[in-house]
C-alpha cells in the first residue's frame, strides 16, 4: 500500500503524495483494531469460500464416496485420488491443449475489440457535445437487456450468408457486439468523472478530440481499462452460449463447450464435474491474481470528484 500512485485518482493539484500515504497507514491501523469488523470480514470470507472448498475436496474423492457421503468425511476418512482429473484431461477424445488454444484465441480479441470500441464511444458520449447525445446514450444503455438468445438466429443467418460461419471471426464479432452496451455504460461512468478542467485545458491548447482521447484520457483510464478487461476476460472465457452457437466446430470449440458436454453425457458423474470445474477455473484465476493490483487501485478510480 505504500506505493500508492497519484495517477489513479486523477485529481489535479493533489501533489502531496507523502501525506496521503501517511494518513492511509493510519487509517489501516485504526481499522485493524476493530474486532467486530475483523470477525465480520472473516465470516463473509469463510461463507464465500466453503462451498468452493467443498468442491475442491470433492474433486479429489473417489466416485462412490462422493455419492455416499459429504466432502467433509475426507477429514475423518481420507480417500484421495487424482483419477477424476486424469479422466477429465485425458479421458475424452479431445486434446486439451487445443481447447486451451481455442479458448485463448477466442478470448483475447473479444476483450481488446469491444473495450477499444467502448472507450471511443464512451468518450463521444462524455466529451463530444452533439445533438441527441443523451437519447442515444440511454438507448445504448438500454440494449443491455436484450437477451443473447434472441440474437442467435438473426446473427447466424447473417454469418452463413456472408460465408463466415464456423470461423473465429463470427465469435469475435458476436462477443464484441454483446459486450458493448455494458462496456460503454461502465467506461462512460469513468470517463464522465474526469475533471472537465483537464479536458478544457487540453482543448485550449488546440488539441482535437482524438488527441484529447489519447493523450489526456487514456492514461488516466488505464487502470479502469485493465480492470474491466479482466471482467470481460472472465465473461468471455466462461461463456457457453455464444461459443456453442458460433464456435462449435472442432477447430474453434473452446474449453467451456467441451466441459459442458462432459457434464451433459454424464449427468450423474459429479466427480468429473468437480474436476472439470477446477480445470476450467485455472486460467481465470491466474488472470485475476496477476491483474488484481489493477482492481485494487484502478476500477472507478475517477468515480469521485475531488
Amino acid at each position: 500500500m505504500t506505493t500508492t500512485t497519484p495517477v489513479m485518482a486523477p485529481v489535479p493539484g493533489e501533489a502531496d503524495t507523502r501525506g496521503r500515504v501517511h494518513s492511509r497507514a493510519e487509517r489501516a491501523q485504526k481499522r485493524l483494531t476493530s474486532r467486530t469488523a475483523s470477525v465480520a470480514a472473516i465470516v463473509i470470507a469463510v461463507l464465500w469460500t466453503v462451498p468452493t472448498f467443498g468442491l475442491l475436496l470433492t474433486s479429489f474423492r473417489p466416485e462412490l464416496d462422493i455419492r455416499r457421503s459429504g466432502w467433509w468425511s475426507m477429514f475423518t476418512d481420507p480417500q484421495f485420488t487424482v483419477d477424476n482429473y486424469n479422466q477429465v484431461l485425458y479421458g475424452g477424445g479431445t486434446d486439451f491443449a487445443t481447447l486451451f488454444v481455442n479458448s485463448l484465441v477466442i478470448t483475447l480479441p473479444s476483450v481488446v475489440i469491444p473495450i477499444t470500441l467502448a472507450l471511443l464511444a464512451a468518450y463521444a458520449f462524455a466529451w463530444i457535445p452533439f445533438k441527441g447525445r443523451s437519447v442515444l446514450f440511454v438507448a445504448v444503455f438500454a440494449l443491455q437487456i436484450v437477451p443473447l438468445q434472441v440474437t442467435l438466429i438473426p446473427l447466424l443467418s447473417l454469418y452463413v450468408d456472408s460465408g463466415l460461419a464456423g470461423s473465429f471471426w463470427t465469435v469475435w464479432l458476436s462477443h464484441s457486439m454483446f459486450a458493448l452496451p455494458l462496456a460503454i455504460f461502465l467506461l462512460h461512468n469513468f470517463m464522465r468523472e474526469i475533471p472537465p478542467s483537464l479536458v478544457e485545458a487540453a482543448r485550449m491548447d488546440g488539441a482535437g478530440h482524438v488527441k484529447i482521447f489519447f493523450q489526456v484520457l487514456l492514461p488516466l483510464l488505464t487502470p479502469a481499462i485493465a480492470a474491466f478487461g479482466v471482467f470481460q476476460f472472465l465473461w468471455v472465457w466462461n461463456d457457453l452460449l455464444v461459443s456453442l452457437t458460433f464456435a462449435s466446430s472442432p477447430d474453434t470449440v473452446p474449453l467451456t463447450v467441451r466441459l459442458a458436454d462432459m457434464v451433459g453425457s454424464r449427468g450423474s458423474d459429479w466427480y468429473l464435474l468437480a474436476a472439470g470445474a477446477f480445470v476450467a477455473m485455472v486460467v481465470p484465476l491466474i488472470v485475476f491474481v496477476a491483474l488484481q493490483r489493477f482492481f485494487v487501485r484502478g476500477l472507478l478510480a475517477g468515480s469521485v470528484k475531488g
Binding site: 442467435l152 438466429i153 447466424l156 443467418s157 454469418y159 452463413v160 450468408d161 460461419a165 456453442l244 452457437t245 462449435s248 466446430s249 472442432p250 463447450v257 459442458a260 458436454d261 457434464v263 451433459g264 453425457s265
Partner: peptide, 19 residues
C-alpha cells in the same frame, strides 16, 4: 461428427439460420 448436449436448441438455431 459433432455432438452437443444443447443439441435440440442448437439444431433449431442452425436450421433456421440456414446452417
Amino acid at each position: 461428427y459433432e455432438g452437443s448436449r444443447e443439441f435440440e436448441a442448437q439444431l433449431v438455431v442452425r436450421t433456421q439460420s440456414g446452417n
